[in-house]
Computed example of a mutant assay.
Amino acid sequence: MILLISPEQTDDIEIKTLHQLFEAGLEHFHFRKPNATLDEHRAYLEQIDPTYYPYIMTHNFPVELTQEYAIKGIHLEERKWREQGAALETYVKSFTDKGFAVSSSYHEPEDLAAQPVTFAYHLLSPVFAAISKSDMQGRGFDVRDIPKFIAGMGGINAQTTPEAVKLGFQGVGALGGVWNAKDPIQAFKEMQSAFAKAYNKKI
């Protein structure tokens, strides 16, 4: 599993590039625009071919966007799932009962391992030094003993993907490793190849 998180700021060619990434095999896109309004989220989605909506997980405006678009589901960043407190399971169920997927983020493997609520998958970061954030140092998490589907984030590109697989990650998530590359499409394809080779070797 390879997932891609959107850049926080949208440039003029992002939508075109995103369509090329979908065509290249991207099936897990995390739509994260923390500073964008609901209408700006709608405008972004309106530019995407609805064929690809089932590949999109939104980080913001989950109720509105799942009601209005046939997207895959929602992602709860750590702050957001913590805010739910004891109501988290009920909140998650309000989406899964309607057929939407719900994923979640963590920064400590212990918190992920202890999470009693069931999610489609979990993101854990930072595994390696982040490409898009120069001050974020990697922690080299080893998750082989956690029996959950975990995707590693932070410093992920074609070169670091095999090491992430060795550490027990069943998926990898990229941001800077693709969007900051000279050729984002080629960078994604190289990640695909590296992940498939490393994962097949592991099993």
Rank of each mutant, 00 (worst) to 15 (best):
V102A: 03
V102Q: 01
V102P: 00
V102H: 00
V102G: 00
S103P: 05
S103D: 15
S104P: 03
S104E: 06
S104K: 07
S105V: 03
S105P: 09
S105F: 07
Y106H: 12
H107G: 05
H107C: 04
E108N: 15
E108C: 10
E108H: 15
E108L: 13
P109K: 06
P109I: 06
E110H: 02
E110K: 05
E110N: 08
E110Q: 13
E110S: 11
D111H: 09
D111C: 11
D111R: 14
D111L: 13
L112W: 11
A113Q: 10
A113P: 04
A113T: 07
A114H: 06
A114N: 13
A114T: 03
Q115E: 15
P116F: 14
P116S: 12
P116C: 13
P116N: 09
P116H: 12
V117N: 07
T118P: 01
F119N: 02
A120H: 13
Y121T: 04
Y121C: 10
Y121G: 11
Y121P: 09
Y121Q: 12
Y121K: 14
H122V: 03
H122E: 10
H122F: 12
H122K: 13
L123I: 05
L123A: 04
L123T: 14
L123M: 08
L123W: 01
L124E: 01
L124N: 04
L124T: 04
L124G: 02
L124P: 01
S125M: 00
S125V: 07
V127E: 07
V127W: 09
V127M: 09
V127H: 09
F128A: 00
F128W: 08
F128C: 00
A129F: 03
A129I: 03
A130H: 02
A130V: 12
A130N: 07
A130L: 07
S132K: 06
S132Y: 08
K133V: 15
K133T: 08
S134V: 13
S134R: 08
S134Y: 11
D135M: 06
D135T: 10
D135I: 09
D135K: 07
M136R: 05
M136A: 15
Q137H: 13
